[in-house]
Design a protein around this nucleic acid. Structure first.
Length: 425
RNA sequence: GGUGACGUGGGUGAGAGGCUGAAACCACCGGUUUGCUAAACCGGCAUACGUUGUUAAGGCGUAUCGCGGGUUCGAAUCCCGCCGUCACCGCCA
């Protein structure tokens, strides 16, 4: 969430940012409300502190009297604390109430978009930041979408997933399963080569963890929740990996921090039906290799572009046609200041599929994470970033479709040392 | 899952209702001494919020001894719940 002090000092910037996210004028009132709640918080806190201070003073003198054996005087002083206690109780209750209102209000405010974020409402207003320079692949008329190919070559089954779990849980088989494993290893090795330390985190996280990276309370409905143990299934490795640095104070020399992690990702994503969610296009469980960086604020945008280059290099090696979009204000994630999406062209479906989202959250996450670094004597919030490198399911969809030939599906050269087969037939 | 022990600053560890935001030691930082290094000695060394101050240095207040409640004029210390660690038992890939 945003810091109240930041909102105070940069009110106009915040308001303009929210307008870019298409906030209506009446919704912007929350900003003034936050400031006045914070004022109330301070006033209340001061009164509470003064009350406590008075009580502490009296208690101390009672201690002195007791030691001096002046029992009667001490008893008299004890009696005088009653009113203060009442006041303390009220003020404390008020403080809790204000804090809750303030937090609730703060949670409704998304990150301030970076100046380069284009205005716009929907994904149609996203800016093509980098187009695919070559002609798009064209397949012959009898080319099949990946869900047909999966049947033909027995690569995965969603029907079987229904039997085992439910809709949207694919079961990969044979070369389909091996292809998943190969891609995961390929992505992890590429990330390691680019300087990212590999992390294998828990796949379930507690509430504090989900809150710190912003999944709670904003996206509560999107996560699977294990009530019995009060744990959430992770929607992305971003959550546990970034939280490694929750409540940490770094030294400047610790930067940059680069981590990568493979995890399955679980998303409830309340359903929508039709061709655009068929097959692997949208599922409840998919595999993803994530890259996470923690950066000095002055370096974070450079780091963001480095992450773009990394994702590009992987897609180049996979020989997939892709383009990069800069998300508009309306499509930008709640916690992000700037996001670039990678889309891969899936030739049989004749559409672009989102396979990666690379974002700079600036201090929005680190504020909740309490992730800071020492800047001289001061402690300053660090910037957090992350990106998919890459999300598997849709990559598989594109690979299968684009590489189909009459003889079978050809595996890209870079992947063959991982699959140990050249073709799916 | 059961039983028992434990959880104190960056680390080790004392404290067992008031004189304790917390001894001592180690680590760290600054200084004195010294051909250099080391040693010795002196000093400093938590975080958050608020307040004051020039958006400074500093001062002041409050909170924090795993987390949350309670008892009490007063809690690191007593009581309750939770979490975690360790040991043993049970179960188990």
């Amino acid at each position: 969430m945003l810091q109240v002090n930041f909102i105070r000092a940069n009110k106009q910037t915040v308001l303009d940012g929210l307008r870019k996210r298409n906030w209506q004028e009446e919704e912007l009132a929350v900003i003034d409300r936050i400031i006045s709640l914070d004022d109330a918080r301070k006033t209340n806190q001061l009164e509470l502190d003064n009350t406590l201070s008075e009580m502490n003073r009296i208690s101390k003198s009672i201690g002195g009297l007791m030691r001096a054996g002046k029992r009667a005087e001490a008893d008299q002083m004890k009696a005088s604390v009653g009113d203060l206690k009442e006041r303390e109780k009220k003020l404390k209750a008020k403080a809790d109430e204000i804090k809750e209102e303030l937090d609730t209000a703060l949670y409704t405010v998304p990150n301030v978009p970076h100046p380069s974020v284009p205005s716009g409402n929907t994904d149609e207003d996203n800016e093509v930041f980098q187009a695919w320079p070559n002609p798009l692949p064209e397949l012959s008329g009898d080319a099949q979408p990946h869900w047909e190919l999966a049947k033909k070559y027995n690569l995965f089954s969603l029907e079987l997933g229904v039997k085992l779990a439910g809709g949207g849980f694919p079961v990969y088989m044979g070369k389909g399963a091996k292809l998943q494993r190969a891609l995961i290893n390929f992505f992890l090795d590429e990330a390691a080569a680019a300087g990212y330390q590999e992390i294998l985190p828990p796949h379930l996280v507690n509430e504090d963890t989900a809150r710190a990276t912003g999944q709670l309370p904003d996206k509560e409905g999107q996560m699977y929740y294990v009530t019995k143990d009060d744990l959430y299934l992770i929607p992305t490795a971003e959550v546990p990996v970034t939280n490694i640095y929750r409540n940490v104070i770094l030294e400047e020399k610790d930067f940059p921090i680069q981590m990568t992690g493979y995890t399955p990702c679980f998303r409830r994503e309340a359903g929508s039906y039709g061709a655009h969610v068929r097959g692997l296009n949208r599922v409840h469980q998919f595999d993803k290799v994530e890259i996470v960086r923690i950066e000095h604020p002055e370096q974070s945008y450079e780091a963001l572009h480095g992450m773009l280059k990394h994702v590009e290099s992987i897609l180049d090696k996979l020989e997939l046609p892709y383009r990069i979009l800069r998300l508009c204000g309306g499509d930008l994630g709640f916690t992000s200041a700037l996001t670039f999406d990678f889309e891969v062209y899936s030739a049989a479906q004749k559409r672009w599929l989102e396979v990666s989202s690379v974002s700079n959250f600036e201090t929005y996450q680190s504020n909740r994470l309490k992730l800071r670094f020492k800047d001289g004597k001061k402690k300053v919030l660090a910037h957090t970033l992350n990106g998919s490198a890459l999300a598997l399911a849709r990559i598989v969809a594109a690979l299968l479709e684009n590489n189909q030939t009459p003889d079978g599906i050809v595996i890209p050269k870079a992947l063959r040392e991982y699959t140990r087969f050249d073709i799916i037939d």
